[in-house]
Design a protein around this nucleic acid. Sequence first.
RNA 1: GCGGUAUUGGUGAAGUGAUUAACACGCCAGAUUGUGGCUCUGGUAUGCGUGGGUUUGAUUCCCACAUAUCGCC
Length: 371
Amino acid sequence: MDLKFKIIKKSKKNMARLGEFTTKWGISKTPMFMPVGTQATVKTLNPEELAEAKSNVILSNTYHLWLRPGEDIVKKAGGLHEFMNYKNGPILTDSGGFQVFSLAEKKNIKEEGVYFKSHIDGSKLFLSPEKSIEIQNKLGADIIMSFDECPPYPATHEYMENSIERTLRWAKRGKAVHNNKDQALFGIVQGGCYEDLRKRSAEETVKIGFDGYSIGGTAVGEEKEIQYKEVEYTTKYLPEDKVRYLMGVGDPIDLIEGVMRGVDIFDCVAPTRIARHGNAHTRKGKINLRNNKYKEDFTPLEEKCDCYACKNYTKAYIRHLIIAEEVLGQRLLSIHNIRFLTKLIEDIRENIETDTLEEFKEKFIIDYYNK
RNA sequence: GCGGUAUUGGUGAAGUGAUUAACACGCCAGAUUGUGGCUCUGGUAUGCGUGGGUUUGAUUCCCACAUAUCGCC
């Protein structure tokens, strides 16, 4: 599928751009943030709650759905949207490449694909570019990812060079078998912290030709300044007229920094994960609801927030729920954190419109870090 | 009244005549970036019922008292 992407406005001061892409679900505005729904659910939330948090695009996962319940069952259900009753908007699926990096302890990366052990029962598994695309074709997300290798940080130049070449060959193989006309396919740029490798990976991936381009292998342990450079080293070699997706990045400040370097889409598990661990994003920094000081705090998480949690509940109550390990606490914080990021992205879009993103960033940092 | 047993942090408890009193839970704080984990990492008794004694040294041994508990009259 050809993903129609239109740039509405480009900043004169940096690489930020305002845009929109169209799927059968309608128009999606960029920059955009997606929460993660690994196992065909954004943990603790239903689609109505996501909609209320102004979230309409999610990222799901090939590896997890392949193991459970299996792609054939999702296909029989009528695809991922039908299966999980998700009608808010587009769904993306990650290729499973990241899981090979993050949870497969004993992995063996070969030219044909990756051999590793299931985290569920330890059984031997094999995932290849072809297999990943085949699974994603059945899952039926609107946008799917090439199968890539996400190398750890630090990695030597030599290792990274071999890795990006292999990821390029995998990208070609995946594209060759992609046969679901309703799905857009993105290529993934790697190269770690090395500019020459990011450049080569980007240019060669673009030559293969994809509907959009993902930036992978960042936020894997490197310093922030390096992380931002990695993004820069990539976006400057990507075509203007295609969507750029920075994978796995969702620190509030990273969203602003990413947008200023030309990123259109972000996803991150952080808002929902930190929520389940009792933390909430606020404009005045991240707060930990477990802290004793919120015991008798009968104000909302954030005064001006329009989310369901802030409109109806107090910190003291949410603290109680979190400490008592009640799932409603995790849910309310997840709702709030997602809304925090979708609101931040809305503000970012407005500031691109008025070309005031730099000023917005300065103020945001002062509020967020000077507690 | 007589005899036995026990008394260690917020809780359940381990332990030793002498370096910083184990562990668990709780509590306090921190982490978390293409989500296996309701996860991970720290901190948390200047003190071993009270008062005496023995000893170079006692939470650990002895005595008295207090409290709890069991048995007997």
